[in-house]
């Protein structure tokens, strides 16, 4: 077991886990009933999936070449920074424009404050 084999195994495991998360989240986007529930799946699982794949690539280059890629870490950071905001904004835009919501949703309705 030299270093390159170990690094390939670690990176492979991380990238597989990440792609599995992304696959399941795309199943969720197909299966779930309305915009809001779909954005749950899209926001959470793809974030963790992208995190795992980038982390796997980062570890691979670090162990084999001794090359610490700051860009990959920054990529992880930016995905973390922007994904929840995107989910929030899409949900809110859908709600303000009265996109249909699943029928048995228990609502404590946000006041339609900003409706023009």
């Amino acid at each position: 077991m030299n270093a390159s084999v170990i690094s390939e195994v670690i990176a492979g495991v991380f990238i597989l886990i990440g792609t599995l998360f992304i696959l399941f989240s795309s199943f969720g986007i197909i299966r779930l009933p309305d915009v809001y529930t779909r954005s749950h799946a899209a926001t959470k699982s793809t974030t963790l999936g992208v995190l795992c794949t980038l982390l796997g690539a980062f570890l691979y280059f670090w162990i084999t070449d001794g090359y610490i890629s700051i860009r990959l870490l920054l990529g992880i950071f930016f995905v973390f920074l922007t994904a929840p905001v995107a989910g929030h904004l899409i949900c809110r835009a859908a709600y303000v424009t009265n996109v249909e919501i699943v029928r048995d949703t228990a609502k404590q309705r946000p006041k339609a404050e900003r409706e023009h």
Partner: peptide, 12 residues
């Protein structure tokens, strides 16, 4: 937004 089963939608 990134925790179990919840997604922030709006602030009052």
């Amino acid at each position: 937004s990134l925790t179990p089963g919840t997604l922030s939608m709006d602030f009052s």
